[in-house]
Design a binder for these strands. Sequence first.
DNA 1: CGCAAGTCCATGCGTTTGCATGTACCTGCC
DNA 2: GGCAGGTACATGCAAACGCATGGACTTGCG
Lengths: 158, 158
Amino acid sequence: MGTPPAVPDEVTADRGPGRTRAAVDAWEAVFRLQATLLRRFAADDVWQGLGLREYDVLHTLSLQPGGHARLGRLSEDVYLPQPSLSRLVDRLERDGLVRREDDPDDRRGVVVVLTAAGAQRQREIGGRHAASIARNLASMPAEDLATLTRLAREALGD
Amino acid sequence: MGTPPAVPDEVTADRGPGRTRAAVDAWEAVFRLQATLLRRFAADDVWQGLGLREYDVLHTLSLQPGGHARLGRLSEDVYLPQPSLSRLVDRLERDGLVRREDDPDDRRGVVVVLTAAGAQRQREIGGRHAASIARNLASMPAEDLATLTRLAREALGD
DNA sequence: CGCAAGTCCATGCGTTTGCATGTACCTGCC
DNA sequence: GGCAGGTACATGCAAACGCATGGACTTGCG
C-alpha cells in the first residue's frame, strides 16, 4: 500500500458520505456471507429431519449449565420471537428431544430441558456441522479467520 | 512458482482441531452480527409497510441496468427460492411497485420491472436504511470496516 | 419435422411464522 | 390483605414460506 492516495482524507475520514458507503459495503458483505453459508449449511445432509432453528435451540441448551434454560431467555439467545419458540419447543418435545418443566421459583415460568436423546442428537449433528463449517471456510488463512472473528464481535459495540 | 518451501508451513497449513474451532468461532461471530443487525434494522421505522425481503428485491432491481431482471435471476440474487419470490412479486405488483412483462426472447420467461413508484419507494427507504446502517456501525474505525468487508468477501472463496 | 428432455414460472398444499391477545402468576403500593 | 400493573408463556388467526408439482415453452437430436 505504498501508493499515495489520489484523494486525501475524504475516504478514510470518520465522517462524510464515504463513511456511510463503507458501512453499507460492510453490511452487504456480511449479509451476503451469512446468507451464502447458511444456504450451504442448510443443504448439508446432517440435520436428521430438523431445521436449523431447531438445531440452534438444542445447541444453545447444550451450552447451558444443566442443559436447561427458561423459555424466555432461550427466546433471546436464539433470536426467535417467544411465540415462535414456544411452538418450536412443542415440536422438539413431541420428538422427545426436549422436555418442559415448571420453574419452581416462578410458577409462570417454563424451563426447557434437554433430554438424553436431545443431547445425543445435538452432539451428532454438531460434529458434522462443525466439519462442514471448517470445510466451507477452508480457503481462509487462519489469521484472517481470527481477524474476521474479532471484527465481527467488535462491530457489535464490543 | 518461485522457491519451494524450505520448512513445512505450520501456520497456513493448520489442519488440527484448532482450525475447526477457529472456523466455528468465525461463523458464530458472523451469524451473530448479522442476526443482531438485521433485528435492529427490522425495528427501524423506515420500511413503509414492506418487509426486508421486499425491499431487497426493489434494491436489487434498482441496481440492474434498466431496472429489470428475469425472475429466475432475481431469485438467485436475493437468496429466495423461486416460488417464494414469485409470490413476493405478486404482492409488489399488487402494490404497484413492480410490473411483470413477457420476455420477448423467451416466452417462458418473466421480466420483473421496477415501476416509477417502486424506484421512488426504493430510494426513500434506501436512504434511511443506509443512514441506519452507518449509525449501527458507527463504533467501528473506518479501517476495520474496510477489513471486515474484504474478509467477508474473501471468505466466499473469491 | 417431431419427439424427449430440459428450463421457466405459477400454484396446490401442508408447515411455520409472528402479531395480537388470553390466561396465569408475580410485585409493589395502599 | 387486596388491588393495579407488570411479566411469562400459550394460542387464535392470517400471512408467508417452501416443497412438490403442473403447464407452457425451448432445445437438442434423430
